[in-house]
Nucleic acid binder design. Structure first.
Lengths: 198, 198
DNA sequence: GTCTATAAGAGGATAGAC
DNA sequence: GTCTATCCTCTTATAGAC
């Protein structure tokens, strides 16, 4: 596990930004954890903002890459099973790395003033990618008459993200991971109550 | 609407602590909104910490006082109806003043380092009061065989708070208030699925 | 009660040596 | 690449006049 100085900086900064918050984290503390002087950090990142935003982007990019790498989604199976696989894989990914999700939650709910605009743009960019993936699956369900076509796609999307985000927030707040057995029963309940009915 | 300088300070500070956060809020900005100089604030509050904590306490104290003032809870009606009334009143109270609940959420999820211990103590103090109120109602339901006695009271409490907190968080994040009709159907679903069954 | 002035220190960022 | 030294600004908080 060789770790370059740049990687060490990113990791130290991630931990501090997560626990202490953007404003309360200072460059000197980050550098002390890495074992370098504050001025050395500016060789790698031109500002505190740039350091923060690159960490934010990396978390999203890792997550989207993970979703895009799910084998089952590329195979020729029923789209409703794909949707369940997506849900299950996402929840598992989040439980493996709750810290990253807590980081995203923190800065989506309470963005620091001096980077609020950049955060908004980045948030839009990444959630659009995520939306497209789910949207394609929902469309496929509608085409194959698994889901009713009278209902709007954005309506289904909203329900899906409300559902999955709740469980992610629940995991973060309680620090308790959802078991595999639970994932399936949660999905069934959701699918029957919110997608098939009403 | 006469407002003393002290009240003006509290209100300006509340808004800034909520929107910008504790660390990013400075005394000068608070005082500028009030129209006094920074040094004058120290006549009313001995520190930034004290100002913050007094606001935190006031929000909780207002909320607990509201709950304790609900007339129906003192009357001689069935405890399950009282529990519903409590839920309904709490949700209504929160929708009327989402900013206050957002304030609590912010500092429960992400407490600033230099007041984390004091916040924890205060949180424990206030939630204990809240717990006792719900606990009494649940006990009464068990005594009257409305709820099953095999199940632990703390179990019921956990379910109740998980349920109500989710809807509060949902309101804060979406900024959409829950309608009266919805409150009842949500409660029915919760009561049947999580309290009567399983 | 509110002000001016100021102490005391923290934090972001740069210049330039090695 | 990493360091020392330093600049400049912002911030909490206090002293003491009015």
């Amino acid at each position: 596990m060789i770790s370059s100085t740049k990687e060490k900086i990113r990791y130290a900064a991630f931990k501090l930004f997560l626990e202490k918050g953007y404003e309360a984290t200072n460059i000197r503390d980050v550098c002390q954890e890495v074992g370098i002087k504050a001025s050395s950090l500016y060789f790698y990142y031109k500002s505190k903002q740039e350091l923060f935003l690159s960490i934010y982007d990396e978390i999203w990019s890792d997550m989207i890459r993970f979703i895009e790498s799910i084998e089952e989604l590329k195979q020729d199976i029923s789209p409703d099973i794909k949707l369940y696989t997506l849900f299950k894989s996402t929840i598992e990914y989040c439980s493996k790395d709750m810290a990253k999700l807590k980081f995203l939650l923190r800065y989506h709910l309470f963005p620091p003033e001096d980077i609020i605009k950049m955060l908004r743009d980045k948030y839009k960019f990444w959630t659009e990618k995520e939306n497209n993936i789910v949207s394609d699956l929902v469309k496929d369900c509608i085409d194959k008459k698994i889901l009713r076509s009278e209902r709007n796609i954005t309506d289904y999307l909203k329900e899906y993200f409300k559902f999955i985000n709740f469980h992610i927030i629940e995991m973060i707040i309680s620090s308790i991971k959802i078991s595999n057995a639970e994932i399936y029963s949660l999905w069934l309940k959701f699918w029957n109550c919110n997608f098939l009915n009403q």
